[in-house]
Design a protein around this nucleic acid. Structure first.
Length: 210
DNA sequence: ACATTAAGTGATT
DNA sequence: AATCACTTAATGT
């Protein structure tokens, strides 16, 4: 049986099920920046996160990105579940934020397990619920928060999933995540620095208030 | 030393 | 908050 799987999901999923997962699931290592799911893709597998973090993005008509949320260890993508059950195509894009390890489960199995294992049912329902909550949070930040609060939240999220309060990125990349322009990001970052919330350097941003 | 890329800034809409 | 136009600073060759 796979050690990491047992370690992260012991107590959540029953032993029998964990055994089945490690037999059937295929371990996949994803490099930082590598695309896992593209918009319009047919979803045949459901990823279960063992290690790392995945950025879930939505795209507008012009092909411009907007981050929805991060997926971390122990998470699975509710939108993937949605696609699987309805046999629909992906509405989102998933990109590995850092070096990530997932276990891929064929969708026919996840249906079978729904009836077979109570813990699986709970797990799916719970992750559905927590993804929904994060989606609402994302909506809130877009609709009700001004750009500087959005930016700060994103920096904190990024620091969290990377497990480091020093973020290696450019203003341009942040602008793309938040769907704004680089100039705006630069100005807001400057403001946040003056408020002693962050520390700026070329290619790195240190988040002071976590 | 030069070119390239990242970041800072004023002015305009 | 977006865009333009320009400057300044850091980094690579």
């Amino acid at each position: 049986m796979n050690n990491e799987l047992a370690f992260h999901y012991d107590g959540i999923l029953e032993t029998e099920l964990l055994k089945e997962i490690s037999e059937i699931g295929r371990i996949k290592n994803i490099e930082a920046g590598e695309k896992l799911i593209e918009i319009g893709n047919q979803i045949n597998f459901m990823p279960l996160l063992l290690e790392g973090a995945i950025k879930i993005m939505r795209e507008d008509e012009k092909g411009e990105d907007l981050i929805l949320y991060y997926l971390e260890r122990g998470d699975t993508c509710a939108l993937t579940l949605n696609c699987c059950l309805g046999n629909a195509k992906s509405e989102i894009r998933a990109i590995a934020e850092i070096q990530t390890k997932v276990i891929m489960i064929p969708i026919n199995k996840m249906e079978e397990w729904m009836g077979k294992y109570k813990t699986w049912q709970n797990f799916i329902l719970q992750s559905y619920q927590s993804r929904m909550k994060e989606m609402l949070e994302a909506i809130d930040t877009i609709a009700f928060l001004n750009m500087d609060a959005r930016l700060l939240k994103h920096l904190k999220d990024k620091a969290m999933v990377n497990g480091d309060d020093v973020i290696r990125t450019t203003h341009q990349e942040l602008a793309m995540d938040l769907h704004t322009s680089r100039v705006v990001v630069s100005r807001l970052l400057k403001k946040l620095e003056k408020e002693n919330k962050i520390k700026l350097n070329r290619n790195t941003i240190a988040v002071l208030e976590l």
